[in-house]
Design a protein around this nucleic acid. Sequence first.
DNA 1: ATGGTTGGACCCCAA
Length: 265
Amino acid sequence: MTLRIATYNINSIRIRLPILKRIVKEAKPDILCLQETKVEDALFPVEEIKKLGFQYVYFTGQKSYNGVAILSRVPLYDVTSMNLVDSDHKRHISAKLKDGTEIHNFYMPAGGDIPDRLLNDKFDFKLRSFDALVEWSKAAHKKKKRMILLGDLNIAPLEHDVWSHKQLLNVVSHTPVETDLLNRLQKTLDWVDTSRHFVPHSEKLYSWWSYRNQDWQKSNRGRRLDHIWITPELLPSLKSSVILRETRGWESPSDHVPVITELEI
DNA sequence: ATGGTTGGACCCCAA
């Protein structure tokens, strides 16, 4: 069976239902992991989502900020949520496939504007969250071999994951302290970055373009903040991975675009 | 060097 697994920072699920519908229709994901749903659970649009063909809908959210969800056409099991560090933020949800493969959907902290943990609590929170994610990854792999780690990680790790490596070295999302952390995370168990598996590191690749550019396509000041990683045990199953860049130009878009990875499971 | 936009809540905050 070919499973199409997607991640998408939707930036409010309620306002983005029309574009979500179009993405589902054209890209046909089997499992769609969302971040920044920005809605408390009681107000989550479950019926509208089920109408899109997702029989299995799981979410954990809060008012105004954060919030994650997994929408699926195939049955999922053992759905849980956790906090990497002490906070009430809703930033993680996980589920298992029938074969035991675990999917972990993360919305990692953006980190504010100032890349200094002493001056900026949000940046400190981001770094502490990634420290915890590194420890979680080491421990998790001892229990489960087939895992998928995906979501808005809010770090663009490689030189060509940003429009200008030089100009973004001191900009939150691409600072050395952040990219080092993401590299440490990758090395914990040799996670495979499925987007880069199919695109050379020398080629520019983005999944996010700021709203603060008059013409996102013309300026093309993007960053690759959204990732789908798999453990080496799943590498034989990896068939493809694409970033749906064109959706950034659709009506009322998120500032992020979906990433979709195909696994033959 | 600065400011640009969006969403959601509330008269501003986070991204």
